[in-house]
Write a protein that binds this DNA or RNA. Sequence first.
DNA 1: CGATATTTTGAAATAATTCAAAGGCAGTGG
DNA 2: CCACTGCCTTTGAATTATTTCAAAATATCG
Lengths: 239, 239
Amino acid sequence: MVDKGVFAYIADSRVPEVHALLQKGELRVFDIGDMLYTEGQKIDHIFDIVSGTISVSRYGRDGRRQILGFIGPQRFLGAASTPLYPNTVVALTKVEAIAYPKSVVYRALSASPEFARNFQEQLVKIIESRDDHIFTIGQRTAAERVAAFLLHLRANQARFAADGPREKNEVIELPMTRVDISDYLGLSVETVSRAFSWLKQKSIIDFNDSHQCNILDLNKLREYGGRDDFTEHRGAALG
Amino acid sequence: MVDKGVFAYIADSRVPEVHALLQKGELRVFDIGDMLYTEGQKIDHIFDIVSGTISVSRYGRDGRRQILGFIGPQRFLGAASTPLYPNTVVALTKVEAIAYPKSVVYRALSASPEFARNFQEQLVKIIESRDDHIFTIGQRTAAERVAAFLLHLRANQARFAADGPREKNEVIELPMTRVDISDYLGLSVETVSRAFSWLKQKSIIDFNDSHQCNILDLNKLREYGGRDDFTEHRGAALG
DNA sequence: CGATATTTTGAAATAATTCAAAGGCAGTGG
DNA sequence: CCACTGCCTTTGAATTATTTCAAAATATCG
């Protein structure tokens, strides 16, 4: 388990303003279901996730929900172009996050070109990850979306796994519910469930329980969900 | 018609490195169908669009295409987290764009915190625009997607329209084909065409020709396509 | 262990796609 | 100027993927 957020890695603490930033960070702990931000809220701090998983989502007038991303350790969130944050962020597991005052973050970004450059790179990676998502829901069938989703989780989980001898049958943790997955993929719950069953019946995956998935045939999974593999990266992920 | 790109607005030319950047910009002209970038290309410059419209898209193995965005004046493109650019960018109309060497852009970003801050804000706006897009294709029906698309175009065109007395029946220019629209919205061409016909038949819109749309009833259009209106902004739009 | 929520499966309904063809428009050459 | 060609757009009918409605199975929690 990592005990730092991503800012500790991308910020150069030799710069005084950056050092001050890292000092000002305040660890906060959230339980399942807690909200880190709510839609329309005026926010004054950036969260840097240390452990756990959150979802970033957006609601339509009539209650339709779209999940924009599932975000784990070593990502930050809270950047927005307006003072009012446009999304809802909920803890899917117990979450530890470091809260940094926004003003102090901006001061540090101004003072350290290196931090600013790394920060920009994280933003670009978020855009690229959104683009993957758009491709997935715009062009793929239900089974392909679910396959792509599993590969996406796998790529992100791999980032922090202890790299012992890699097992042939990899395990993917699914900390979210089927409803969350369906709201992420733009499908109904039932369709997501059927897609899992279909992949299972084809011996491409199977489940220990509904939140732990084994990949039995990675190549086949890639045939359905692959463009390439998704890009792995430590980094940002706002919404 | 604007004769500058967005960098001229967001960069502080009193900083020598920024001044040098603006000097180094080189105007290029593209015809309909020309490619500004191709997928997997190693790119060494950022484009800042002065006039015209381009599409940013991504292809799947079997040829499926997803358009990630349509981009007009006062936006830049070319930022990527890897040396190889992941998308294809094509001119939909005649396009004038200023090409800036990437290295010079990065030097200017390091030298001017103000430019860096504005640049970051543009990146955040791109993310927010991608989020709108994800919501649209993840949660909306065909007619709603088309309505949302029209509102999106309207918001962006409004940015540079001469603000004389606003007409009741607003006109929206559609420089792209129906196939482009369908690849943007994750629908088939036929479905897009039917959605237009449906909105027409409800007297919400009508067409002068297939690339010029009148909004007859903006409120009704918003009932279908609105979350709120889309945020208008001069700014970035990479892909 | 019982109660509640989540996940899976089944059958019917529906939105969107596919296949097919007609209509419209733009450009080219006679 | 008109006719021909090719492309883009619209409309129609049949097919299909996904959703919706309904219920059973499974897991979770006090």
